[in-house]
Design a protein around this nucleic acid. Sequence first.
DNA 1: GCCAACGTTGGC
DNA 2: GCCAACGTTGGC
Length: 164
Amino acid sequence: MAAKRPARRSWLFKSEPGTYSIDDLARDGRTSWEGVRNYQARNLLRDELQVGDPVLFYHSSAKPLAIVGLARVVRSGYPDPSAADPSSEHHDPAQDPAVPRWYTVDLEFVAKFAEPVTRDALLARPELAGMMLLQRGSRLSVQPVTDAEWRCVLGLAGLDPRRL
DNA sequence: GCCAACGTTGGC
DNA sequence: GCCAACGTTGGC
């Protein structure tokens, strides 16, 4: 029997495009996802995200609200350097330097959708009714995405999930 | 700009 | 450990 490999999991990252957009990621090619200051998201970044995991990139507080492209995890969780940097707006003065409190991962640009998959389009799909992004009050900025949700979103984007 | 939802903080 | 106050997120 083949050795069991941990299942690859899919994720959704939220970002306000005025802060960091899919175009910024396309330009940079790769970025460190610094500044997450929520323990639930921190736990995912630190413990769950693995190199190679695919990521949906969502624009929040934007027009339109939409999933706008794809990224990939290229470095798994490591201590967020901005937390220990007094000059950073994300500096956490309460963090003990010896005990990192916040974590980040590195993302690589994969694709920008030809047309954004809008929140309205997502809401119109019955099979996405349970998607975390669409639950009221869901504020988590890093969210797990099921395989079925992933396939549905890529279908809405006009992409074949099997070819990625 | 409003406000619901939710997380964090701090007094007790 | 409870819980009220407060701050933030983010859709509308």
